[in-house]
Design a protein around this nucleic acid. Structure first.
Lengths: 253, 253
DNA sequence: CCGCTGATTATGTATAGACATACGACGTCC
DNA sequence: GGACGTCGTATGTCTATACATAATCAGCGG
């Protein structure tokens, strides 16, 4: 009762310029990234770290849980925590919004609707949307222009069963991607990236000459197991590139 | 002493089939993904969640910190926590190891070293490795074959200043990527993805006919601010594609 | 020698209480 | 009225403790 409490209960909470658990984390990450603790290495037990950092177990537990969530280490009960093998296979891909990307480069941006059709889904449409029974779809084709030069051709399919209000929008001013992003919540997206020779349609829309390689990004966006929209964007090879960066300790900043 | 301890101090710790904080997190995520809590929405304060879930603040804090780390919400002191705008721009890109990818498809894999040269870095090499002063490099060219058909052309540059032992390896049996992965720790990688028309060199190595579009993946791998290796892999367009998936709540499983 | 059982132990989850810090709001003073 | 300081509040971090759980390992009986 009424324990007088000399002063502060911890003696460490506010000492450091930055949070203690962040310093510990940086410490451990350094050991792992430098290779001193190679993949498979068993890192010290929580109680050992508690001793060496002179803090409570909750604090080192927070650090280790974080590293585990980030995929840097793997933990096994009763056994210990181990440095994980870095997986080259995944990286954070940056897929910029077309309009934003062009704006960032400080170039003039223009958008053009080439065609807009509402129709009952064809067999091909149904496959792209991953559904069985027929429904209405909106088929759009449009063009993005940077510095007066065609920059991308966008061919889009919108599932009107999932997004009925889209049928009331004429997409002559607002690109469909922008509208959808602002009006429809989604919870998953999948991208497929391929290279292909431009077909006649693309050649014309992008004003390219005969043998032209293009980067094609196909994206499907889900909301609760239903595909909202499926879009294929074709970029002339010399105007666009994707970059992906990966840091094993991957923290969002 | 020997505090008898009526029973459990919390009344909730072990009640649920799964962890409480995971149920809370799933709960909040559901509200966000379903759109009921749209981007910008201020989610309940910690103390409100404490009340409604009848748990301690540490527990809801863990949930909210996790959501913030995952980029689902943003937190501001004294102000509150808000649903973040989903960023389409980033996704986890899966960049498979060539050999593993082919093996997964159950196809025969073969590897061929086309050329191997050690030389003083040229100006172009230095640029690819992002360094100023000259050094020795290993220049490799090799081919990956699936089902008897050329599947990828790999052109690689290895910085011998960073990886001296590489000069003793003849890469006739082991692909350089595999060897490097197993022997050199790295902490960052960058990928550039483009489409291009196959040049004569690529046409020959991949046995393609004249106008052929290829997907080109360039990867540079760092160790402590120094580039270990720079590699360019060229895939015939019809044999390869990259896929990337993104879930805003992105938890590694 | 095999298989079961119980002890041991590291991690997993949760609590209550404390103090730190940033920042908005509001009131004061010139 | 605008600059400035105080106060309240929500989040950020940390501690000490408690109990749960899973997996290993030693010991024991068959």
């Amino acid at each position: 009762m009424a324990t007088p409490r000399a002063s502060k209960p911890n003696g460490k909470a506010q000492a450091a310029p930055q949070a203690l658990y962040q310093r510990i984390r940086a410490d451990l990450e350094e050991k792992i990234l430098s290779g001193r603790w190679p993949p498979g290495y068993r890192i010290p037990f929580e109680h050992e770290l508690v001793e060496s950092y002179n803090c409570s177990r909750m604090t080192v537990n927070k650090v280790l849980s974080g590293l585990a969530a980030a995929g840097v280490i793997e933990r096994k009960r009763r056994v210990g925590s181990f440095v994980a093998k870095p997986l080259v296979q995944s990286a954070v891909l940056h897929i910029p919004d077309i309009q934003a990307e062009i704006a960032k480069r400080g170039e003039a941006y223009a958008y053009e609707l080439l065609s807009r059709k509402r129709r009952k889904a064809t067999k091909d449409d149904l496959e792209r949307l991953g559904i069985d029974k027929s429904c209405d779809v909106l088929v759009l084709s449009c063009r993005h222009i940077a510095k007066g030069r065609p920059f991308a051709l966008e061919e889009r399919l919108i599932n009107l069963d999932v997004v009925p209000p889209a049928s009331d929008i004429d997409f002559t001013r607002v690109p469909p991607g922008t509208w959808l992003l602002g009006h429809v919540p989604w919870n998953e997206a999948e991208h497929r990236i391929t290279a292909s020779l431009a077909d006649d349609n693309a050649l014309k829309a992008l004003t390219l000459k005969k043998p032209a390689a293009c980067l094609v990004v196909e994206r499907r966006t889900w909301r609760k197991n239903k595909i909202i929209t499926s879009v294929r964007v074709t970029y002339p090879n010399d105007l666009y590139q994707l970059t992906a960066r990966f840091t094993p300790t991957g923290l969002r900043s």
